[in-house]
Design a protein around this nucleic acid. Structure first.
Lengths: 244, 244
DNA sequence: ACAAAAGTGTTAATTTTACACCCATGC
DNA sequence: GCATGGGTGTAAAATTAACACTTTTGT
């Protein structure tokens, strides 16, 4: 909660201020929760149990707790998104990275009343993806392959939000830190490459990817971790992102 | 205004829906209006005439017109920003490009009540910058060199918003379309380079910039315009961005 | 031994970066 | 003519891209 050193004039003004009764919008936080599972980019969608759009798939989201008093103005947007993420996945807070996507406030986007939604992107590390449960509320939540989602049938304007979210995710992946948020704490080079291929939906030359990765190691961005992976034919070396 | 083909169930539900009285936040649109003037990146700031933060500099902004009825939900966020831009600069609508920056809703960021601000970036072409008037409301508006703004004294959390806006502007400049929005309709290569140097606050090698520019011409992104510029010692060739 | 995936090497094409230098014009 | 800034040329370094090849393991 931000506080200011108010001038005496401002303090008096704020004290005497009474919220006017201009119409105000409802405020929600929706989250596009991504992960990479089975070398495929997935997004968590819920099936709506209540109208409007009952039965349709939608991004998880909910109302932001708002207070209008000076001293208790309610919950931060980021916290609301974090809460939504926790409620829908059961993952402990802090286990996924959240980034704001933007605000969606077009009139009519919710048929009931004016709603402004602040959309977020959440990145769930691959190793935690299988742990997500159905979600607290009755609505069933599950991973859906982004490539196979029928955008036209999503509730509200979630087609646009999901489209924007995947675009931003792809762009953000240019930063290694984005990939870091999607892989397990320790990973092999081929596993990391699979993240890129899943998000970009295109193959990456293994040798060239390796070269890029080598630079990250030289820059101290990533480092060897002990052990080898047991699964593959030839065991791959294990790495982890350095703790900055 | 977006409309949906609602199912009968949804239509009935929406009809019977009455807005609950959970607390709702106030909603504003603030705009970081940028231009390049005298080879320097400028931002339009107003001096607040009313508390809170009377006398402090702030980004122009105002309340978004909100309706809570089903059929009249009020004004789009983009339109509110456009309106604010027009009111503060006097420029005809459409003469500057608007891009959403993001939502700012931290509790306490406005000492009066909970306010969610959707921040925008506006790009004013260099040739129009000298035309902006003081602004409609009494508050005086004027161009300020971004490099010389004292962020610590800005009103509200506008220090953070302006910081984020300049960061995004710099990143967006990687796209030629961003530079296109900041230069006059016709321009010389050195003039365009000045835009980059102003935004990045660093010199660009003229020869290398020229080479990059040459590629844009080959890609049909930009084309020769008739005439030469009369000002400089040696008259520079004039170009314009192709109309896509 | 052999298939499959990890890992290495080589080379061309392209882009980036850093300079040296020529050229046209207003004064 | 000459200073100034527009415009051209060159070359090393770094990155990107494509592809052939070797190595190591479980079965």
């Amino acid at each position: 909660v931000r506080t200011y050193a108010l001038s005496p004039e401002d303090a008096a003004f704020v004290e005497s201020y009474r919220p006017g009764d201009w119409p105000r919008p409802a405020l929600t936080a929706d989250v596009a929760i991504f992960t990479v599972l089975d070398a495929d980019l997935k997004v968590l969608l819920i099936r709506r149990g209540q109208p409007p759009f009952r039965g349709r798939l939608a991004l998880p989201g909910g109302f932001v707790q708002v207070g209008v008093q000076k001293n208790d103005q309610g919950e931060d947007l980021d916290d609301a998104a974090q809460r939504e993420l926790h409620e829908e996945t059961g993952l402990p807070p802090g286990s996924a990275e959240l980034r704001q996507l933007g605000a969606y406030g077009e009139p009519g986007r919710d048929p009931r009343t004016r709603v402004v939604t602040v959309a977020y992107i959440a990145l769930v590390p691959s190793n935690l993806a299988p742990l997500v449960r159905g979600g607290d509320d009755a609505a069933e939540a599950g991973w859906h392959s982004v490539a196979q989602v029928d955008f036209a049938t999503l509730a509200f304007d979630h087609d646009r939000i999901l489209h924007d979210a995947t675009s931003k995710l792809r762009a953000d992946l240019a930063q290694p830190s984005t990939a870091a948020a999607l892989v397990a704490p320790t990973f092999t080079i081929p596993e990391l490459r699979a993240v890129y291929e899943a998000v970009w939906q295109s193959d990456h030359d293994a040798a060239n990817f390796r070269r890029k990765f080598r630079r990250w190691v030289e820059d101290g961005l990533v480092e060897r971790a002990p052990g080898h992976r047991a699964t593959a034919r030839k065991p791959a070396a294990v790495y982890r992102f350095s703790s900055k």
